[in-house]
Design a protein around this nucleic acid. Sequence first.
DNA 1: GGCATTACGCTACAGGTCGTAGCGAAAGCT
DNA 2: AGCTTTCGCTACGACCTGTAGCGTAATGCC
Lengths: 204, 204
Amino acid sequence: MQSRTPASRTGRPRSAAADTAILAATREALVELGWSKLSLGDVATRAGVAKTTVYRRWAGKSELVTDALATLFDQLVLPDLGSLRADVEGVVLQFAELLEQPATKTALMAVVAEATHDDALRQRLREKIVARQKRLVVEGRRRAQSRGEIPPDTTDPGPQIDLIFDMIAGAVVHRTLVSCEPVDSGWAARFTAVLLDGLAAAAG
Amino acid sequence: MQSRTPASRTGRPRSAAADTAILAATREALVELGWSKLSLGDVATRAGVAKTTVYRRWAGKSELVTDALATLFDQLVLPDLGSLRADVEGVVLQFAELLEQPATKTALMAVVAEATHDDALRQRLREKIVARQKRLVVEGRRRAQSRGEIPPDTTDPGPQIDLIFDMIAGAVVHRTLVSCEPVDSGWAARFTAVLLDGLAAAAG
DNA sequence: GGCATTACGCTACAGGTCGTAGCGAAAGCT
DNA sequence: AGCTTTCGCTACGACCTGTAGCGTAATGCC
């Protein structure tokens, strides 16, 4: 999680409680203050640690918020609801619910913004967020294939997975954070219908 | 563009050249520094104006960057390419090209991030970016209807327009800025096929 | 032309944040 | 015990913020 874990065995170990306290304080401060007014000194005070302790573990605000964000995305799971359509609607609503949390929306957009001009941060974002969420698409496809709802892969499914991932995540993020409209069950049903019907028609 | 235009007729008028210079300097500084390291004092120096002049016109960093961003989005047009499919592919590629510009991607994400906890900024964003660009969807639908490609409206087209807008803009933004993959003509064609086939199937 | 009004550039300022350095004390391992 | 590393704390220079005051420049009105 931190920038380095040099396999040092001697000396006083770092407090694991401090890690969780700092990440929790970061999420809390993000909700109250937003990205631009979030200061690492304030985070340290909230977490009950010294400011220097924060700087010893994270290089800056971007890295700290990225890790705080990763703990939020770990909540996502893919429940088996019995059909592809129900699974997609379920993950859409679940993802929207996650993005409703103030800490999630603020942190995600701010980190993406910083990542546009920071290669290391972009790499960190792809590893800890994007790659993890793509597994939901892979798993949903695998279930649908085992149910016989969609045919098995004949070609490389990679581009198809990327397209589905960007369409689902992009639409939910855009509606929630840019258009600022709620993702309710009605919207989720209409979106899922367009997506699945379009995929079926484009494949056949 | 600025916060107030009190219809004052007497006194020295504000320099329009200063406006454009400040906005251009903002876009330039955003590319070099990113959001978090962008300072208004630096923008003023780049624009060749005093720092106080910037503060007289914009309340803060968020408002300034939002206006700088709006000037970029106003470049978007909807060329008539003869068919709905070609029009959609054209606007997808054009939007992707706009998002390839470093100033656009940085500014858009940063403003969205700040808007998650700033009601006034969110309102500004909706007025100057979202509402303005929805015109592209409305215009594209109107053209397709006049060509007979899609039936005329029978119910309120508002939700349909919102869904299309979020799906197009969301997918392009997500692929470009979060997944960090290029939007080339192949991806645009596959995305457009899924979208239009899905809309046709869901309507019929 | 003279006058009021407003914007401009410039300087200065208090307040806050940043990121680092140094110190002694605490906590673990051998 | 002795060694090593982290911990909390304080202090520091540097930078950015947003405002105030000053004299000057540009415009409209009389």
